[in-house]
C-alpha cells in the first residue's frame, strides 16, 4: 500500500445539490421574469439590475473580507439572489443611489450584521424594499409605464391597480374597466418583478421540478388570500376587491414564490410553512383592505419572519416509532 487514500466516517458519497447550486437554481428560475422586465422597461431596468446585482455581490464579499475578516463567510451566489430579488422589487425608474442604498441595507444590515448567510432573521431583499419604501416613498412609488424594447399597448401607467383601489376604492377600479378587459398577464405596472404572473409561476414551477423548494408556503398564501378576499368580495362586492385581482396583482406571486420561500427566513416543517403562509396571506389582505398602504406583501413577509423561530419550535416532523 504505497498510495495514500482518504479515510472518513460514512457516508462516502454526497448528493449533487450544494448551497451554490440551489442559489443558481433560484437565479435561473427568476431569469424569465428578469428578461421580460428588461424587454418591457428597457435601459432604466438594466441599470437597476446592474447596480443591484453588482453592489450586493461586492458588499457581501467586502464586508466578509474587511469587517468580518473571513472571506469564507461571503456567499456570493446568495448575494446575487438577494440582488436580483431586490431589483425585481423596485420600480424601473428607481435612481441608482436608491438601489445602492437598498443593497447596503439588504446585505450590510439585514444579512451580514447577523453573521452572514443562514443567520439573518429577515429576508434581506424584502427588508431592503421596506426600508426604501419608508425612506424614499416618492422614488419608490413612481411606476413607470412599460417603455422598453417591446411595444406594449394597454399598459397602465402611474398608479397600480392596488394603488387605485387604495385611493379611490372600487369606483376607481371600475373607471379603468375592472373587472373585464385586462389580460392579467403582461399589463401590470408596479415593481418590475410584478410584471408577469405567468413568467413568475413558470420560474416557480422550475424550482418545484428541481425540488429546490416545496409548494406548501405559496399554496398556503394563495389559499388564504383567495379565502379572505372571496369572503369579503362575496359579502360586499362593491367595497372589496375579489380573489383574482388580489392573487395576481401586486407582489403576491413574486413574494409568495420567491421571498416567502427563502430557506433562511421561513419555517422548516411543512405544517409550519402552512401556518406561516396563512399568516402572510391574512396580513396582506388586512393591509390591502384596511391599511393605508396599497400593498402589504413585504410587510406581511417581514412580520411573519419574526414568528419563524416560534413556529419552528411548535412544529416538528413525526418521529419514527414514537406515536
Amino acid at each position: 500500500m504505497t498510495d495514500r487514500y482518504l479515510v472518513s466516517p460514512s457516508p462516502h458519497i454526497h448528493a449533487k445539490a450544494s448551497t451554490d447550486s440551489l442559489m443558481r437554481d433560484v437565479l435561473i428560475a427568476l431569469l424569465p421574469v428578469t428578461v421580460a422586465a428588461i424587454l418591457f422597461y428597457g435601459w432604466s431596468e438594466l441599470l437597476v439590475l446592474g447596480v443591484s446585482l453588482l453592489s450586493c455581490a461586492l458588499l457581501e464579499w467586502a464586508i466578509a473580507k474587511w469587517m468580518m475578516h473571513d472571506v469564507r463567510i461571503a456567499n456570493v451566489p446568495s448575494a446575487l439572489v438577494t440582488g436580483l430579488l431586490l431589483a425585481l422589487n423596485l420600480p424601473a425608474t428607481a435612481p441608482w443611489w436608491v438601489v445602492f442604498a437598498g443593497a447596503v441595507f439588504a446585505i450590510g444590515i439585514t444579512k451580514m450584521s447577523f453573521g452572514g448567510l443562514g443567520q439573518n432573521i429577515f429576508n434581506p431583499a424584502i427588508a431592503a424594499r421596506v426600508f426604501l419604501l419608508v425612506s424614499f416613498p416618492k422614488q419608490m412609488t413612481v411606476w413607470a409605464a412599460p417603455n422598453g424594447f417591446l411595444p406594449v399597448t394597454d399598459a397602465i401607467s402611474g398608479a397600480t391597480l392596488l394603488g387605485k383601489y387604495n385611493e379611490g376604492g372600487m369606483e376607481a377600479l371600475r373607471a379603468l374597466g375592472y373587472p373585464g378587459n385586462h389580460a392579467l398577464f403582461f399589463d401590470m405596472g408596479g415593481s418590475v418583478g410584478e410584471i408577469s404572473a405567468g413568467l413568475l409561476l413558470l420560474g416557480f414551477a422550475y424550482l418545484l421540478l428541481r425540488k429546490v423548494v416545496k409548494p406548501w408556503i405559496p399554496l398556503s398564501i394563495f389559499a388564504t388570500i383567495a379565502l379572505i378576499s372571496g369572503i369579503f368580495h362575496g359579502v360586499a362586492p362593491d367595497t372589496y376587491t375579489g380573489p383574482v385581482l388580489n392573487l395576481l396583482a401586486g407582489g403576491v406571486i413574486l413574494g409568495a414564490c420567491f421571498m416567502a420561500t427563502d430557506y433562511v427566513t421561513s419555517p422548516m416543517s411543512a405544517w409550519g410553512g402552512v401556518i406561516y403562509g396563512a399568516g402572510i396571506g391574512f396580513i396582506v389582505m388586512m393591509i390591502r383592505y384596511f391599511g393605508s398602504y396599497p400593498e402589504g406583501m413585504s410587510f406581511a413577509i417581514l412580520i411573519m419572519n419574526c414568528f419563524v423561530p416560534l413556529i419552528d419550535r411548535a412544529f416538528h416532523q413525526k418521529k419514527y416509532g414514537r406515536g
Partner: peptide, 28 residues
C-alpha cells in the same frame, strides 16, 4: 474517485430542511 467522495468545506446551515426530509427516523 476524489470527485465523488471528497468532502467539501463546511458552509453555514441555510435551514433548507433537507436533512430533516431525508432522515428516515423523522429526526432533525
Amino acid at each position: 474517485s476524489a470527485e465523488r467522495t471528497r468532502r467539501k468545506a463546511e458552509g453555514p446551515c441555510i435551514r433548507c430542511g433537507r436533512c430533516a426530509d431525508a432522515c428516515p427516523m423523522g429526526l432533525e
